[in-house]
Simulated assay, not measured.
Amino acid sequence: MGLYIEARIRADLDDLWTRTQEPSQHQRWDLRFTRITYLPRAEGEPQRFRYATRVLPGLTVAGTGVSAGERERPDGTRTSALRFSSPHPLSLLAEGSGYWRYVPEGDGVRFLTGYDYRPRWGRAGALADRLLFRPLIGWATAWSFDRLRLWLERGITPERSLRNWLAELLVRALVVLVAGTGLALERFLPVLGPLAASMAYLSPLLLALAISVALFKSPLPGTPAARRCLRRPPTRVRAPRVLHTLETPR
């Protein structure tokens, strides 16, 4: 699988399963989807679904998928696998597949995913995917996993955690803006007197300090952050067998 994300969530396994398997719950925390709808199915058949993602105001990319899960496994873990495709000409993702694993550990669950996809638009699409889209969707997945963790561990709803993230992002941007404005005014300090002139030597240092704080300071506990998730598998991983039983939807 091309992308791997893992989060350690201190929560009940059944609660985690519900928040990730129930479409109305899933679409609340997962930044990659705006809407997920299950389609009717017969007993014993894989679950088919439709998904939609709002890329820009007025522009929604949609697709279809099929999933299957193993809620009871001999080792106590659970697995969910899916395949998906999108016929939308503006969707960079033509088709792909992935899985979720739920591994109970102590007082929590290791919740991890591995997935990959085939981009469209030929060489241009492959280049755009490698340079921009794949890093972005990897970040979005990790950010969403931490958003889910906050919901389960701290009771912070996905809607509130998004507001927390936007507010903190705004504060960090303002810190950089104010520091940058101070540096731009540095050349006018000498005319204000010797003391003001001596401050000119400190301005670049203060700007560097402000930017470092804004970019690298750990997010607040109630703010979701992709950096809290593991982005590389600790050992070699294999896709679950149930994934091979699914056909790519058309």
Score class of each variant (00 low, 15 high):
R227H: 11
V178S: 08
W139K: 07
L92A: 03
G193F: 02
L195Q: 05
R54V: 09
G2Y: 05
V237E: 15
T34M: 02
G155T: 07
G182I: 02
T248V: 13
L169N: 12
P233K: 10
S86T: 09
S144E: 05
P119L: 09
E95C: 10
L13Q: 15
L170F: 11
R32I: 00
E186I: 06
E247S: 14
L39N: 09
L207K: 09
G96K: 00
F188P: 00
P240L: 10
T181Q: 02
T60P: 08
L152G: 02
A200M: 04
M199Y: 11
V242Y: 07
P234E: 14
A140R: 10
L112S: 15
T37M: 05
G69T: 12
P104L: 06
F49A: 07
P23D: 05
P74S: 08
Y4E: 07
W121S: 05
D12L: 08
S24Q: 12
P204I: 00
D30L: 05
S80G: 01
S212D: 14
L177F: 11
P89H: 05
R35W: 02
L230D: 07
L16C: 13
R78I: 03
W165H: 11
R163H: 11
R50C: 06
L16T: 10
E95D: 15
S80W: 10
T113A: 10
W100R: 08
